[in-house]
Computed example of a mutant assay.
Amino acid sequence: MTDYTAIQDALLKSEETKQAYWRELDKVAIGLRQAFESHLGVEKNSTWFDPDSKQQFRYVELGYWDQEAASYQKPEFIKYKNGDVIPGSEKTLEFVIKLSIDSPVNPNHKTIVHIDFKLKKEASGYNVEYTISGETSRETLEKSSLEEGLSRVSENLSQGIIDALDASEYE
């Protein structure tokens, strides 16, 4: 029975280690949403009401794509609720930050920007990859200066969205 007990112990340790890994990545993803919201100057956890769905949404919302959607359907954005486990594979957390932008001429109209992320833990920190309007960027966040890294990514996200909205080619 000693080998069986050793195998059970190894299984328990493996599961605990994996859970800790994913929880750590979840915390970084939540921190990134909060840092981006703060960088934009949006009031913390500020929301708007969508009369069509009759739901409240944050202006800066953390979520993920519904992986169960059929290949011919547009995947549905699922907003993160405290305690959710964001899907991941191959040690990479895949999530989305959805930014709702009020129209300057009609505050009832929102433009929605989805930013896709891939986050992976490395020895000294985290590798983050994000895609805005088909343009992918990669950055490294050092554990020792995580807040500074989240701030830097937030600045780059803002500039990436501004660049994506550039309509100078129509002038």
Results as ranks from 00 to 15, higher is better:
Ala29Gly: 07
Ala35Ser: 08
Gly41Phe: 02
Ser14Leu: 13
Ile30Arg: 02
Val28Pro: 04
Val42Phe: 02
Leu32Gln: 07
Ala35Lys: 00
Ala10His: 02
Arg23His: 14
His39Arg: 10
Leu11Gln: 04
Ala20Thr: 14
Leu11Phe: 02
Leu40Cys: 03
Trp22Pro: 04
Leu32His: 08
Glu15Gly: 00
His39Gln: 08
Glu16Trp: 11
Arg23Trp: 11
Val42Asn: 05
Ile7Lys: 02
Gly41Tyr: 01
Ala35Leu: 01
Ala6Ile: 07
Leu12Thr: 15
Ala29Pro: 10
Tyr4Gln: 14
Gln19Pro: 01
Ser14Val: 07
Glu37His: 05
Ala29Leu: 02
Asp26Thr: 15
Tyr21Asp: 03
Gln19Leu: 10
Gln8Lys: 09
Leu12His: 11
Gly41Trp: 03
Gln34Ile: 00
Ile30Ser: 08
Thr5Pro: 00
Ile30Pro: 07
Arg23Asp: 15
Arg23Glu: 15
Leu32Glu: 02
Arg23Ile: 15
Ile30Lys: 06
Asp9Glu: 13
Leu12Cys: 10
Leu40Trp: 02
Gly41Arg: 05
Arg23Lys: 13
Gln8Ser: 11
Ser14Tyr: 09
Val28Thr: 07
Val28Cys: 06
Glu15Pro: 00
Leu32Tyr: 08
Asp9Pro: 00
Asp26Pro: 00
Arg33Lys: 03
Asp26Arg: 14
Ala20Trp: 10
Ala20Asn: 15
Leu40Val: 01
Phe36Arg: 04
Asp26Asn: 14
Val28His: 03
Ala35Val: 01
Gln8Leu: 14
Arg33Asn: 01
Thr17Met: 05
Ala35Arg: 03
Ile7Trp: 03
Gly41Gln: 05
Leu32Trp: 08
Ile30Phe: 12
Glu37Met: 02
Lys27Gly: 11
Gln8Glu: 11
Asp9Asn: 13
Leu25Gln: 11
